[in-house]
């Protein structure tokens, strides 16, 4: 067996050389050109994704502080940053908050987004215009919309409480109560995420063949049953993509939380992402900040893999 392989391998170059003297160079060239086509992508990924990730991992094992910027020295401290991260009393709080924030946002965004997508599927006067309006939260700069929300949710003079006051509801401490602040922040994030969910799900609904519904209606499947047996199975791959992408987007949210509460009151809206920001850019403990963000990267990475395997499956189907 091995001998025959050897023979085959050995004989080929000889034959090539004998037959076409120019071929080896051509082959080298063609393999080189193949690499050259990949090179831009490889370079891009290496410089803009590989380098930061590797640097972040290295940083998390170093005492990387303000001093490092001037001296260039970042002493190796092993797992000290991770020990500090996992040992901090804040860690459990931030993990729980991150989980609540992500799950709460995703579930509500998805349900409302799907509802709106189904609603807009039937075209009616002005439906296109309204669908356009729905994109508004997406178009506004995040810092601007979080500043406006902060003002609207103010306990004493915010528009939301003024409105609730009309119905005799006493002022709600939206951003002031540690129990409500996370709910308020999730609410704003839901408002922000609805356009994304609606848009993607709407396009998914568009691709469901109309004939299926017609056939089903002959069999008596309309309304909820049509949704259960036709719509849902047809858009399942879109649904999984929306949810997985949503999770990754939501995990890393910093700006909305910083704009609304800055992680407060009393750390009740502190998530892994805001904590990493705080460690790195307020305390200037870049090592610990890197350790926290690596935890976040690992979680996001798991979801990214899920996304890739799901989208591959979708292609196969």
């Amino acid at each position: 067996m091995s001998a025959s392989v050897e023979a085959a391998v050995g004989s080929r170059p000889a034959a090539v050389v004998a037959g076409h003297p120019g071929r080896p160079r051509a082959r080298v060239l063609s393999s080189l050109s193949r690499w050259l086509f990949i090179a831009p992508a490889v370079l891009y990924v290496a410089v803009f994704f590989g380098y930061p990730v590797v640097k972040n991992v290295v940083m998390s094992f170093q005492d990387y502080s303000t001093r490092t910027f001037f001296t260039g020295e970042a002493p190796w401290v092993g797992f000290k940053n991770y020990a500090a991260t996992f040992g901090s009393s804040l860690f459990t709080t931030t993990v729980v908050n991150t989980a609540l924030f992500t799950i709460g946002s995703i579930v509500a965004q998805f349900v409302i987004g799907l509802g709106l997508a189904l609603f807009f599927k039937r075209s009616f006067p002005l439906s296109g215009f309204l669908r356009g309006l729905l994109l508004l939260p997406w178009l506004l700069p995040l810092i601007a919309s979080s500043a406006v929300w902060k003002w609207m949710l103010d306990q004493d003079s915010g528009a939301v409480n003024q409105f609730l006051g009309l119905f005799g509801i006493p002022a709600v401490p939206w951003l002031v109560s540690p129990n409500l602040a996370l709910v308020a922040v999730i609410g704003v994030n839901i408002w922000l995420g609805i356009p994304f969910n609606t848009t993607i799900l709407y396009s998914g609904l568009q691709s469901v063949p109309q004939e299926l519904y017609e056939a089903a209606s002959l069999d008596g499947a309309v309304g909820v049953r049509a949704f259960r047996y036709i719509t849902w199975p047809s858009i399942r791959s879109v649904v999984s993509v929306v949810i997985v992408l949503g999770v990754v987007y939501t995990l890393k949210v910093v700006d909305i939380i910083l704009g609304l509460t800055g992680g407060g009151p009393a750390n009740s809206t502190q998530t892994l992402a805001t904590n990493a920001y705080h460690q790195s850019f307020v305390n200037f403990q870049f090592g610990e900040g890197a350790a926290v963000s690596n935890v976040l990267i690992v979680v996001s990475f798991v979801f990214a893999i899920v996304y890739i395997s799901l989208s591959r499956k979708a292609v196969d189907e």
């Binding site: 002031v176 109560s177 540690p178 407060g264 009151p265 009393a266 750390n267 307020v282 305390n283 200037f284």
Partner: peptide
């Protein structure tokens, strides 16, 4: 800065009940 963080953390915890 570390002490400053502790102080505002305590103030927030007390004022929010």
């Amino acid at each position: 800065p570390k002490a400053a963080t502790k102080i505002y953390t305590a103030v927030q915890a007390a004022l929010t009940g």
